[in-house]
Design a protein around this nucleic acid. Structure first.
Lengths: 199, 199, 199, 199
DNA sequence: GATGAATGAGCTTTCATTCAT
DNA sequence: AATGAATGAAAGCTCATTCAT
């Protein structure tokens, strides 16, 4: 078996840290915890990421790129805005169910620990890949007359807040059913909220 | 001037801690920070709250009760579901704008630091006052035929996620306008999503 | 026995740290070392000095004030410059012999670890009490015609370098005799170097 | 271009380390720092010097040999003790001005970090080349009746302490003028202090 | 000889909590 | 109730040194 490259090791570390940060919290996860989970020495961790904060920032960029790529696929497909919303919700919940760490990290680490991301992730710098795709979806929908022309942030907040809220409830084990059983309802709710009056 | 009662002092401490926790983060705020802001000794703080975690839990209950009371007023008023939604959004954004600590605490301290609230605030125990009112609103709306009879959590997630998301964007200074300028749009979006098909 | 005041404790810590720093070196002495020598917890040390660097800076100021006070006594006495030089050398060597830490600290910690004293002790800020007295001595001697009017730094370098060098040799156990046996020779050498031509 | 011999590489490393140790301090300079400055791997450094301490000791020997050689030239020239003192001071200050690392290393690394040089450089073992020349100068001067017959260490301390002190003041940027402008004053001061009474 | 990833002990510093007064 | 000095475990991080390649 070939030895992993430095880049692969970096990714390994990010994935493990992602898991721990999202599950235990950023502050409750120590560098030794991460190192131990990776069977790696503490000192060596610092050969890959110069600080815990930098590691956290790299992870959110990684997630944003990952989610952004998924959304781009949907944006590029030749379907209606309504169908795209459904596809968005579906993929989002699939990820939340199968790789919950990513969404949890977004909600519980990135959105919450402002002090950590203050320097270097101002505004939406570190999640631009992801946000950009939402923006593209929305603007194309408006252009084609499928969506109502409202303030982008109203629409964005609806999307992300709604989905995030559901995943949060899921993570808290408050939801009585599996996430995917909500896809239709929620996609519909979002569509009702965003569609142009003509539809 | 009468000496404050023990209960009043407790509230004072909670309000100050609320401010600091929401602004600086739970972990970035130390007990000495809170004590200093209150002109109080560290040791004495522990006469009122036995630990930092307990303080954090008391605060979320306090907020839930406060917000719940506001919502109850709306629920008890004799207006349509559509108007209630508008009133909800309005009061929520007003609070977020004038006393942002409460909502910020909800989003950034309570929702994010699971490890802190794990014991004692499982599920929705510590926010039940608030959640209950949303539930009442929703069920009455459905009963009266104003709202579509969908899964409660779909509706709840929409409400709380959407509003939370907007306040988050506001807190990040990403929103180009003041929060109140979004009230109509958002109330409308929510209503479109929740209303019964007959309307 | 009365409990020591906070100021007395600060002084205690400085004296102990002074001893250790000068004997073992600044970097080879750890905060736990100092705490243990004082029967004190590591954490409590930080209630008195916010960092190791700050502690080091406070110590040099303390030493400078202490030595400055000794020199002032001599400056204020009504004796000739030649006698003052002798008294200077004598007291300096006495201190070096009885409380060697002070002079050693000056030579081995303060003069050597520039990186530590960079911020806050630029130039002679932290040793001004001491340097000022040397300056007064020199200028008065010149004024009275007892000393040659040469560049102050030539004279200062002679004084401090010479005495420092001797103490250094003593500390290294290179000197075959006790320090005080050199007092006459050295005082004489300095006087020969500084005296005005008329004498 | 011929490949450098192992000995040349060793010297290269010493010169670079000398520069860094004297500028940044022994403890503030890491082995990776030195390796990077040399475009060399950390591991390979250890093929030339078995430890950081050993490197430091080799450097002081190197400096002592270098300075000793300069002094020998003066000692071997056919000039008076007074002229030799002047030549000593001149060359010392020239080196301090043009290659300040050497003298700085002597003052700030060797003299200060006793713990590092403890084993292997006791007494004057590692600086004997240099000290020997001072000794030769002094003894010849006494023999020829040019210098007063006093304790060698009094004279040595004067020499090295004085010059060291001046270089230190220079390094601290406290001196108002360039070092060479002090040569005459200082050489004269030293001569006045050491000359035999007959002169 | 040369590389640089890996090790791990040990450092400075923080902070929730306790407790003598 | 009130004080704040004291505790000590634990964190993030560094770095001399080793070693497989």
């Amino acid at each position: 078996m070939a030895r992993p490259t430095k880049e692969q090791k970096r990714e390994n570390i990010m994935l493990e840290a992602l898991k721990l940060f999202s599950k235990e919290g950023f502050y409750a996860t120590t560098i030794p915890d991460i190192a131990k989970a990776l069977n790696m020495s503490v000192g060596n961790m610092y050969n890959y990421f110069k600080s815990k904060d930098i590691l956290a920032k790299e992870i959110i960029k990684y997630i944003s790129a990952y989610l952004g790529k998924e959304l781009r696929k949907i944006n590029e497909s030749d379907i209606s805005a309504k169908e795209k919303i459904h596809a968005f919700v579906k993929i989002y919940f699939e990820i939340a169910q199968n790789e919950p760490e990513m969404i949890e990290y977004f909600l519980r680490v990135y959105l919450s620990n402002r002090e950590v991301f203050k320097d270097g992730c101002e505004g939406m710098i570190c999640v631009s890949d992801f946000v950009t795709e939402i923006m593209i979806f929305f603007e194309e929908g408006v252009e084609k007359g499928e969506l109502r022309n409202q303030d982008f942030f109203s629409a964005f907040g609806l999307f992300m807040g709604y989905l995030g809220g559901m995943v949060f409830l899921f993570g808290e084990k408050i939801l009585p059913n599996e996430l995917d059983s909500y896809v239709d309802d929620i996609a519909n709710n979002i569509y009702q909220a965003l569609k142009s009056d003509e539809n």
